[in-house]
Structures are given as structure tokens and as C-alpha cells.
Amino acid sequence: MSKEELSRVDENLTLETDESRRDFLDKFSKGIFGGLIAGGIVNALAPVQARADMDGSNLNFAEPFKPFDLPPAIPGEDVILRMMRDLQRALKKPIEQRHWNMVIDLRKCVGCDACSVSCAAENKLPPGVIYRPVIQQEIGSYPNVGHVTLPRPCMQCDEPPCVPVCPAQATWKRPDGIVIVDYDQCIGCRYCLNACPYDARTFDFGMEYIDGAADAPKVFLGKEKAGKYETEASYEYEKEWKREDDKSPIGNARKCHFCIPRIEKGMLPECVVTCIGRATYFGDGSDPDSLVAELIASPNAFRLKEEVGTHPSVYYIK
């Protein structure tokens, strides 16, 4: 899909008037006092937190992506394989030329929560931290009933309200569209949690699932041995994180990061691969040949809460 088409989709779906009104209110209230207006201007000019390294020129990965051979394509192959091919193509481009998009086809989502659990397991999320809950609701009345499900990863907004609010410059948008949290910078003020219109950020309170269990290693497996999987490294952003003491990511804001360590190895995000409804798609939206670009162009594609002007990278299909 071309850029023009992309913006057409935007326009169709955006309630411009409302957004600009809110924009105005937003800027106005920000700018109302003294020197703060300057901050407001920064925001007005650079709606996305701009960082010097955002142009990607200095994102020189020590290990460039090594493509691997996928089995030859066959008719009717699983979309997972198709998307892995798309992914490899995208990774051959410079980072600033790709834009990661996720598409969730709600007609195919069966509300199984495999994505939530898989993500929690992959990222070693402690209790209370969740990147992709699946919201479920019954609608209608007997016998005309419906059940709607809504998996909610981070929208990786192109205009992410969570970014400018961060006092610590701990969160920003990468050139490929992913909004990241730098755990080492984050002070844990939770401002971004409040700022996100999707409740997509949660705070790591340092808990463990095993906390409530008794430790009786002479009899049962015991808490200590049982809890090991929780403290093994999690791979987020470009690092590994071990949950120990009060070290990050404990005390940090956390959110879905589109499984950066996986995608940069040519693997699809966890929630995509495990999705039993094959309702979740991932790829480079700026590649017109990719499956996600195809899907974003569907007439029934939409984005959540367009009216807040966040321009999510996550599309839904209804």
C-alpha cells in the first residue's frame, strides 16, 4: 500500500474536528503558564518525542540481521510463514524505512487469551503487568447474542501521548514505529500510565506469582525452585533483564514492545505466532507487498479511539 493510501485510511477514520479541538485544549492548557509555553511549542512542532537518534542513522546494530531460509512457499500456506517472509524483506531495509504495524482481525479472534498468556510468559511479566489483555464482552439479548473480543497490545501510536509526558526521556518512538521504554532511564513516575488512552502501560510492582506459596522444599517442589522461571532473563528491547532486588524492570512502566528482540531476529511477535484464531498479523506496513499492508487497506479496517489523535500502528478489522 502506498503512502497516499495510508493517509487516505487515516482521513477516513479520523474525526478531525474533535481531534483538533482537543489538540487545541491540550496545547492551550500546557502553554498557559509562563515558560511552559516553550514546552508547548516543542510539543506542537514535534508531536512525537524527538530524540537525536531517532533518524536511525546511528542505530548501527552490531549484528546485522542474518536472513535464514524458510521452506519454499506453497499455495494455502499458513499466514505465519507468509508473514515471516514479509519480515525478512523488511529487515533488509534500513530501520527508518520500515514501519511495523499490527492488524487484529476481530472476526477471527476467538477470545482465547493465548496471546495474553504467551506474552506474559515470553516477557516474564509479573502479576499486575500485562501487555496484551483481551477484553471480552457479551452484547445483545437472548437469543440474539454476540460476544466481542478485543485484544489490546500497545498501539505503538504515531503520536503517542505517553511519550511527551515522560519527564525522564525514558520513552520514545523508534523510526520503525515502536514506542519503547528505556528501563534504565525510567524513574517510575507512572505519568505515562495515565497519559495512555488505551491503558496499555502497566507498572512493575516487583511481585512474583509464586509470592503466596509456601516454601516446603523437603516435601513439595517448594517456592524457591518453583519460582525460577520467573527470574530467568526476559528479552525486551535489546537487552536481557533479570528480576532481582529492586532492579529494572521492577519499578518501571512496562508495555508491549512488539517483541523487538524477536522481530530483529526474523521471528514474529509471540502474540502473533501463538494466535490460534490466526487473527493477529504483523509486518512492515510501508511495504506494499506485505500482508499487513494488504489488510490495513481492507474497507473494514479501523483503529481504536481515533478521536484522541494518537494514530495507532495497530489496526483492527471488524
Partner: peptide, 25 residues
């Protein structure tokens, strides 16, 4: 190559880890 291709399982399958490492096992 197989190691790099993950495929689908349900949430219970994912949660197998917690059955395996049940502290009361």
C-alpha cells in the same frame, strides 16, 4: 530453521510452565 519458527498453541499450553513448576508439586 525450525527453532526460529514458532507456531500456535492455546493459553493452557502456554501456561504449562506453571503446572510443571507448581510449588506444591
Amino acid at each position: 530453521i525450525g527453532a526460529k519458527i514458532d507456531a500456535g498453541i492455546c493459553p493452557k499450553g502456554q501456561a504449562g510452565i506453571q503446572t510443571m513448576y507448581d510449588p506444591y508439586r
